[in-house]
Nucleic acid binder design. Structure first.
Lengths: 200, 200, 200, 200
DNA sequence: GATGAATGAGACTTCATTCAT
DNA sequence: CATGAATGAAGTCTCATTCAT
């Protein structure tokens, strides 16, 4: 049968992306079939191939777009002249907010890297490294100007990212603390990690 | 054909466990076939079913045994009377050493929880919670006796675990720092997170 | 590859039904593989699943449709006002003709009931009972109006059905007697079973 | 492990026969696995092969022994000089009693003939034909001496056997009629089929 | 004579993908 | 652009059978 009235190809592609994101996050790339994505989208499996050449391309696009969006979102909110302590706080708040809003993208970005074929994997890895350079640079500036007392910049960077990203595994919207409170806690924890003096 | 001379069932079962661990860690549970595990083990796929009723049982056993072993390993090295700062350092060193030795078990314990069927999932979750209680209890003791200045016990606990476990994703045996050095860095980072005074 | 030009799904489904009927009758449900049905149909095994969800559903549909068709075929030829002796003769001729035309359906309807899962089994049983009510009712009418001298209505009903249906196990198209002759013999045998007076 | 104390090979072989009979009757030859038979027997599948070379041999032995036993049981009770009416009644009573006692053997003798490989099938067919000759001979004697008014000897023979054997499909031990009563009904039905005068 | 472990084939079913319509 | 039907490969698991112990 032909396309139903009132739908456009772009709409379908977007619905496929949403469905795939949801399902990959819930069950993992390998465990999700094109038929399952199609069912969630409301089309037959064959229709997906009008928009994405292969299942692998679908995953790759999700991850690539996520990383690109993350990077450009940071570029948009970044405040260039900020002193390291304020810059780090700014980054922490950005990272938490952004990652909670896209918890499924974040999740599959960590989980499904290994499902990418080599070439795709490498491209995503580059983007990931780029993002890791953001806190790393702040740490190094802070170490240089004496506002931080960094133990080891590389490990501290990874520790910060792991700590912040780990939040997506336990955060629930109606938990004990509000998002603002959690953010505040993490800002202070990160400050401690980099050896800032407590200001309260 | 029957069993080849000189082999035993227990050996095969162990080889299957090893192969499955390796492959699940590398490619993920859903992406690994029983045939692939069998090939790595050196038997036909059907032979696995003499030792494990289903693929799910195989995963479940790996995860269950890992968590049980982790818990009993801790119980064995735990030093009951230790003051909170020393207890925390002890835990950090234990966790790092143990997790690096079993990086694949750790990896699939985090990655493949979602591949467990409901009942199996619940059982493993209980064990995971049990393990999280270990640092949590130390933090609370330290908060009570004033040796720590904890910002938020729950978040700090999760942050410590995420930070430490994240190491398995980037640690390489011949990297810039030795394991001893890395351990020392993490001990200090954790000390900062819980608000201990720097002792150096 | 996709569908070959000039074929339709309905055709394939029908070919699958035919092949399954043939093979189930010859070798039994459990001894026939989906691959064998597919080979007889001229498609790959997977293609069957576009038309029948499971092998069990395929069997179930064959049996259900057979029983429904049998019942509605009877309803179509039934002559309501007929006196019991003529009604019984009418039924005997119908049963023989119908069952010889569909000897494979009849065969698997008796043989493969036990291969049906519980729910499917119950549904088919209901239809079978409905069909058995047809001769039973004629017998009872004939007993009531004195045209028959029934020994025991239930046993006689079962005896008639067993006797008639048993014919499918030995009937061969080019045997000693023509179908018309066989029919005539059975009409007289049934007349004897119900205690009609011989009219010749 | 070796044989458990107190069991003998002959016992196991007999238990295997019983289990196979039971399971073949319930689910059909093709649907029953050697493992299932072994489980019902209380041994491992491999042990069956100490007593029966293949699954096919097991089926074949069950059918062959059944037919041989049936034939020799008849030979034992047969009363040579009996007049046709009494001989037929004698046969009917024998057939019913014998078949109800061995309903599973009877059932698989009809159902699983097609599961026999060619050579085995032919051998069993010979025995079946031998048994069918028994009523056939009585009918012919009765036709010759005028005590029966047979419509068609072959069809009547098959009708009698189908009718009698069909009973195993609906007979229940605690049904409406006792076995004696059922027997009496069938004796009279058969007498009608062969055109004897009603004697009551 | 029995066990337990193995093989190699094959069971049902699902999969990613293709393509006529 | 979507459907529905197909392929060919592969998935998990079971099977009859064999054989070292």
């Amino acid at each position: 049968m032909a396309r139903r009235a009132g739908t456009t190809g772009a709409e379908t592609a977007e619905k496929v992306r949403k469905a795939a994101l949801e399902l990959f996050a819930r069950s993992g790339y390998a465990a999700v079939s094109m038929r399952a994505i199609a069912a969630e989208t409301g089309v037959q499996a064959g229709a997906i191939y009008n928009h994405f050449p292969t299942k692998q391309d679908l995953l790759n696009e999700l991850l690539r777009v996520h990383m690109e969006t993350l990077l450009s979102a940071w570029e948009e909110v970044e405040v260039p002249g900020l002193a390291p302590p304020e810059a780090l706080e700014h980054f922490v708040r950005f990272h938490i907010r952004y990652h909670l809003d896209r918890s499924r993208e974040v999740f599959i970005s960590y989980m499904e890297l290994r499902s990418l074929e080599d070439e795709n994997f490498s491209a995503i890895e580059v983007l990931r490294r780029d993002y890791e350079k953001v806190p790393r640079a702040i740490l190094e500036r802070g170490a240089a100007d004496g506002s931080f007392a960094i133990i080891d910049p590389q490990i501290t960077t990874m520790a910060i990212i792991a700590m912040l990203t780990g939040m997506t595994t336990w955060y629930r919207e109606n938990g004990r603390l509000s998002l603002d409170e959690i953010e505040a806690v993490y800002v202070r924890l990160v400050a401690r990690l980099v050896g800032q003096k407590e200001e309260d």
